[in-house]
């Protein structure tokens, strides 16, 4: 190893945030949500596209559509965009049903949908397939560090994307439950937890052309983030959603040596009002 390691302060990875959106829904709402029509402008999901999808895929797609609607770059072609989905313990209810099927009926009781629809890549792939995005699509995380991992991989993918496909952007979709579903041994839920989705639409930007007054995201070295209060690497998605809804500055650790700084867009009055309504409904 190098005795004098180079510092991550030299990092060339930056993204402007063109849009961000948060959504949430309770477990009991998903059978209805999966059957809804998902469309924005000229983009729409094929009918019944989400019929086998995991809850986190449904909420991820909803947050993506909301971010699409508030994109500051209107009418931009998304066909070469990349999708990164950071999920936490996705597919649990379907996995439980699959295990029950395996136990009770043997291999014929295992649904073939479990692999394509309930794996770590599934949310990203559903967005890519559903909306015709031909840039890279992959899943990230799986555990409690997923949002940090998603932010980091988005920012570090950006320079390559800026070179190979300069007009492409990155849709970072983060999903997770506030509390994991609690399931009986028959697979039925015994609680009704809230599932959240957060989508950031990121535009890769060269370091020298970053407008630091605009919403943006970038990697900073440890010595640079002491001045700000920063979140630990396993910060729950709920906290990110709340900070984004308020337009608050956020720094989140990604390792001992570096962190991600996020300056989110300031939400519009309408978005604030909509978020407040959701919060009131949830409280009720």
């Amino acid at each position: 190893m190098n005795q004098a390691p180079s510092l991550p302060a030299n990092l060339s990875a930056h993204c402007q945030i063109d849009s961000c959106a948060t959504v949430s829904a309770h477990l009991s709402e998903f059978p209805t949500l999966a059957r809804e029509k998902y469309a924005h402008g000229s983009y729409s999901l094929p009918t019944r596209f989400l019929r086998h999808a995991d809850e986190q895929t449904v909420i991820g797609v909803r947050s993506l559509l909301k971010a699409m609607a508030s994109d500051t770059q209107k009418n931009t072609d998304i066909s070469n965009d990349a999708v990164i989905a950071a999920t936490c313990l996705a597919g649990q209810p379907a996995a439980a049903r699959t295990m029950i099927g395996l136990r009770d009926k043997g291999p014929v009781g295992v649904t073939p949908h479990i692999v394509p629809q309930c794996s770590l890549h599934s949310v990203a792939s559903a967005a890519s397939v559903g909306f015709g995005m031909h840039g890279p699509n992959f899943g990230v995380g799986g555990g409690t560090h997923c949002v940090s991992e998603g932010l980091l991989l988005s920012v570090t993918l950006a320079p390559m994307l800026a070179t190979t496909s300069p007009t492409s952007r990155i849709w970072l979709i983060c999903t997770g439950w506030d509390q994991q579903p609690s399931l009986g041994t028959n697979g039925e839920a015994t609680n009704d937890p809230l599932c959240r989705g957060l989508t950031l639409l990121l535009r890769p930007t060269l370091a020298h052309s970053v407008d630091t007054m605009c919403p943006h995201i970038h990697v900073v070295s440890q010595q640079d983030f002491h001045s700000h209060s920063h979140h630990p690497i396993d910060t729950p998605l709920r906290q990110f959603c709340e900070r984004f809804e308020n337009g608050d500055f956020t720094t989140v650790a990604v390792s001992n040596s570096c962190a991600i700084e996020i300056l989110p867009p300031i939400p519009s009055q309408d978005a604030r009002r909509s978020n407040e309504t959701v919060a009131q409904k949830e409280a009720a």
């Binding site: 992959f138 990230v140 799986g142 994991q180 009986g184």
Partner: peptide, 29 residues
Amino acid sequence: VFHAKRQPSLVHRAAQILGIHGPAATVAA
């Protein structure tokens, strides 16, 4: 599977076992 526990994914646990303290991530395609 019925009462899923939240924990860091395997790559973070493996990083601790291996003495890797830099950034770590799981990716899936």
